[in-house]
Amino acid sequence: MTNESKAISVNRWRLVLGGMSDKSLEFSGDPDEIAMFQDMEDLLDYLYSRGQGDDVRDEGRSGGQGGSVINAAEWITKVRDLFPKQTAEVLECQALDKFNMTELLTDKKVLEEMKPDIQLLKTIIQLKHLMSGEVLQAALKIARQVAEEIRQKLESTIKRSLIGRLDRNTSSALKCSANLDFKKTIRRNLKNFDKASGQLILKDVYFSSRVKKHNKKRIIIAIDESGSMLGSVIYSAVMAQIISELPFADVRLIIFDTNIVDLSDHADDPAQTIMSVQLGGGTNIGKALAYCESLITTPCDTCVIVVTDLYEGGSVSQLMNVSKNIITSGAHLSFLTALDENADPAFDKTLGQLLADIGAFVGSLTPDKLGDYIGRIFS
């Protein structure tokens, strides 16, 4: 091992062991390298001293090129400057999830520098009550970015599933291969068959339309605000947006705990829905379902989807009675115990079985599978 590689190994071990080992294991290298490693150690101490019950922000440390006291904005900026990207992201996640550094999300500059992803958005939802003004606007921007990224991944698959089978009885002005009506085109052109060449000459090509626009289907989505449903809340909001853009879909969107908030006017704005979530409090599924029942006008063209873990804090008998009424009316009733990328539910299986026994669908779905499911209901 060369002296240079040995020095690098020693310096890395020193970062692992922390500042308490400074007397027995010193940084080595030229002055700039030593200063860089001392700065890296300050950043790690800022984070990991919390695990020992200390807060190094209250201690005066010497060494390094930076000051001995740093704030969250400086910390995250320096972490990204000094550590590889993957390492920086691990440190950021641990700062939020393990050491509860909530100040990372109450500083506009920090929020603007963090990588927008669904895990960050979940944390923002949990800490939203600490935000205001420009910080809250920065959080809303992140919600829009994450929601848009999810929409782009899912939109084509969901719309293709929901548009459903072609309406072969109506011609379409939209001339694309997906709408080509082979049977009608061949049948109408049989009179143009050229016996000499043995070829069918196509003088007219016919295309089929999709499901008729006036055939409205009401899709009521009720989202449980429980903390365990965070991922499902985010995906449900994006699904509502995608479905609301379809010509035959009439989306009604509510969120609930013991109270109900009707966000139907914002069904096309998932970020607004996500940032309207208020975690905490109880859960009254029966009350929310009764409100959903009041939105049903044409039962056979209505699908009620309740995204919930089924841990009912209200009256179970009310929930069962309303569920029976909806199913008896001819509307479709579904309880999704998870709607996210994993579809890994934790729910009240006893209540779930009771609801399944009366004819409700109870289960978890990934968002793309929800598109297939709704498409089958209305096919």
Rank of each mutant, 00 (worst) to 15 (best):
R12T: 05
I201V: 13
I254R: 03
I285C: 13
N259D: 13
A178P: 01
E134K: 10
D372W: 03
P84I: 08
S323P: 06
P31N: 12
L354F: 06
D55W: 02
K122E: 11
G286V: 13
A138G: 02
L295A: 08
G67V: 03
H214Q: 14
E225D: 02
T297R: 15
K98Y: 14
G198P: 03
R187E: 11
V56T: 09
K85S: 10
D30S: 05
V306S: 05
L319H: 04
L120T: 14
G67I: 01
L120W: 13
N11M: 02
P247I: 05
A95F: 05
E59L: 10
E89W: 02
S208P: 06
M20A: 14
A173F: 12
V251H: 07
L162H: 01
P345Q: 08
K122M: 12
R376A: 15
D268W: 11
F347D: 09
R80Y: 08
P84T: 08
L162W: 03
G375H: 03
F83V: 10
R218Q: 07
S323C: 09
K175N: 07
E4S: 09
R218F: 08
G375Y: 13
S208H: 15
D32C: 01
K369P: 00
S226P: 01
K159H: 12
T273Q: 06
L295C: 05
R252E: 06
I358E: 08
D265P: 00
T258E: 14
V110P: 00
K6T: 07
R187K: 11
I8S: 02
G63Q: 02
V362Q: 09
T102K: 09
G66K: 13
R168H: 14
W75H: 14
L44I: 12
K203I: 11
K85A: 14
T157N: 04
G198V: 03
G313Q: 05
N215P: 00
G314F: 15
F83C: 04
E134P: 00
S209P: 01
L82W: 04
V261M: 10
A237E: 04
A240M: 13
Q145N: 01
Q199K: 15
L43E: 04
V322Y: 01
L180F: 15
L370M: 12
V306K: 01
K153C: 04
E59G: 00
G198W: 13
G359S: 12
D117G: 11
M229P: 01
I70Y: 04
T297N: 01
E92S: 04
A173E: 12
A147Q: 05
M229D: 06
F347C: 11
S21G: 06
F182P: 00
F207R: 04
L140Y: 11
Y235G: 04
M1D: 07
E112Q: 11
I223K: 01
F193D: 10
L121R: 07
P270R: 06
Y235P: 00
M320Q: 07
S28F: 13
F207M: 05
F335E: 06
D55K: 05
Y46C: 03
L166P: 06
W75I: 00
I377Q: 15
S171K: 12
L253D: 01
L279E: 13
H332W: 11
P367M: 12
S364I: 09
L174Y: 07
C176H: 11
I255S: 07
K128F: 15
E155T: 10
G133N: 08
I186D: 07
Y206Q: 03
G133A: 10
K141P: 00
N215Q: 15
